[in-house]
Simulated assay, not measured.
Amino acid sequence: MKHLLLVWHSQSGHTRQLADAAASGAREFADEVELRMRNAFDATLDDLLWAHGLLLGTPENFGYMSGGMKDFMDRTYYPAEGKTIGLPYAVFISCDNDGSGTVRAIERIATGYGWKAVAEPLISRGGLAPGALDQACELGQMMAAGLSLSLF
């Protein structure tokens, strides 16, 4: 059984809705992939070390990831050093701007962890963009299917 960790943070509720949609997609592979969904403030080092794959969901705040997501990364970065190299991950972002600052920040930190991006970031602009929930569901499906088939 493979393990997929979904870490999210939301204030307006948009990112939570995207996280729920991604989780719904991942649960279609429940026979092969166990999903663990955690709010960023509740996610722990043990959760991260448990994971074979990672989905990160955050709003964009002032051109950056949310404080909750940054907190998760701050708490786990050094304790996980060298232990999550090659971990496949994907990102979904809810924003009012363009999301690019958040993508760059997460990519820089993920590079330090040694993680491997396996999908283009999903960016829902202007709250929940049309089709964003379907795209998040597909992202969850893709991550779970990739893990179940050992594609990454």
Rank of each mutant, 00 (worst) to 15 (best):
I106Y: 15
D96S: 01
Q135Y: 09
I85W: 10
A119R: 13
F152D: 11
S124Y: 13
M142P: 02
T111W: 07
G101F: 11
L4P: 09
A80P: 09
N97I: 06
G63T: 00
S148M: 03
A21G: 14
H52F: 05
T102A: 15
A19G: 02
L49C: 05
G63P: 03
I85G: 10
N61W: 13
R16K: 12
A90C: 07
I123A: 08
H52W: 11
G146E: 02
M1S: 08
A43G: 09
L149K: 11
S12E: 13
Y64V: 00
Q135K: 15
H9I: 00
G146L: 04
N61I: 02
K83E: 11
T15C: 13
A22T: 03
D47V: 07
G86D: 10
G57N: 02
N61G: 01
P130Q: 07
H9P: 09
G57Q: 01
D20S: 00
E34D: 12
L55H: 08
S66D: 11
D96P: 00
A110W: 02
F72T: 01
L5E: 03
I85Y: 06
L139M: 15
S148I: 05
E28I: 00
F72H: 07
E32G: 06
S100R: 13
A145G: 15
L54C: 03
L55A: 03
P88R: 04
L18F: 08
G82M: 13
F92V: 00
K70P: 14
G13D: 05
A21W: 12
E34T: 08
G67D: 10
E81G: 07
T58Q: 15
M142L: 08
G86L: 06
F41E: 14
H3I: 05
A132W: 09
D20V: 00
C137W: 04
Q17D: 11
G146S: 12
A129E: 15
S148A: 15
D98R: 10
L48V: 03
R125L: 09
A105I: 04
L54A: 02
A40N: 01
A132F: 13
E81C: 03
D42E: 14
L149G: 04
M65S: 14
S12R: 12
P88E: 07
G68V: 02
H9F: 08
E34Q: 13
T58R: 08
S100L: 12
M69I: 15
S12K: 04
L139T: 00
Y113R: 07
A144D: 00
S24Y: 06
Y78I: 15
G67K: 10
W8L: 02
P121K: 02
C137H: 14
L133W: 07
D134T: 05
L128Q: 11
A119H: 11
H9L: 01
G13T: 02
